[in-house]
Amino acid sequence: MRQALALLLPLTLALVACQREERDTRPQSALGSGEQPTPVTTLEPGGQRPSPTDNKAASFEANAFHMSEGKRLFSWFNCSGCHANGGGGMGPALMDEKWLYGSSIESIHATIRDGRPNGMPSFGQKIPDDQIWELSAYVRALGGNAPSSAAPQRNDGMMVHPSENRLPDAATLGKSP
């Protein structure tokens, strides 16, 4: 009995440590949820208010599966054509700590869905909503804003920059690289 218990204890501990990342295998909708407004500024007359959150945000943010899907879609939808592999080109860099329209996953989602006036196209009618969330999660990872245990690892092909899970958090660098 004691022996059995001695075996059971580490086994239980091991199983608890092995908690599987949750993945929603049945996405809710193909197109457009998230119609709630996402402010692009922190300024609001009458004092600060908490920024609204989307109920989808938490399930996509920092989720390894969704981020790796986002990485694949990042080239499939030609995001890489303008933003390169995060360093930017026709569009701004996404690896740095500068966010023109907000760094939260909700803001990034809104940017991809609705576009922005200085050149960012609106993809809302082209990309299913859940895939926009996956792209948004990946874009945050490009800036070093995702846990390194979940962010994508190195590419198979040409090494274009340090893999996402090794990128430092851009916000903590404190200066332009």
């Binding site: 995060g86 360093g87 930017g88 080109g89 860099a93 690896m95 274009v160 920059h161 990128l167």
Partner: peptide, 20 residues
């Protein structure tokens, strides 16, 4: 000069179609 005028990130070797 896009790295300056577009404020691109030099950690990505492929930025600005590789010029960065």
């Amino acid at each position: 000069g896009a790295i300056v005028s577009g404020d691109l990130d030099p950690r990505d070797a492929t930025a600005a179609l590789g010029f960065v």
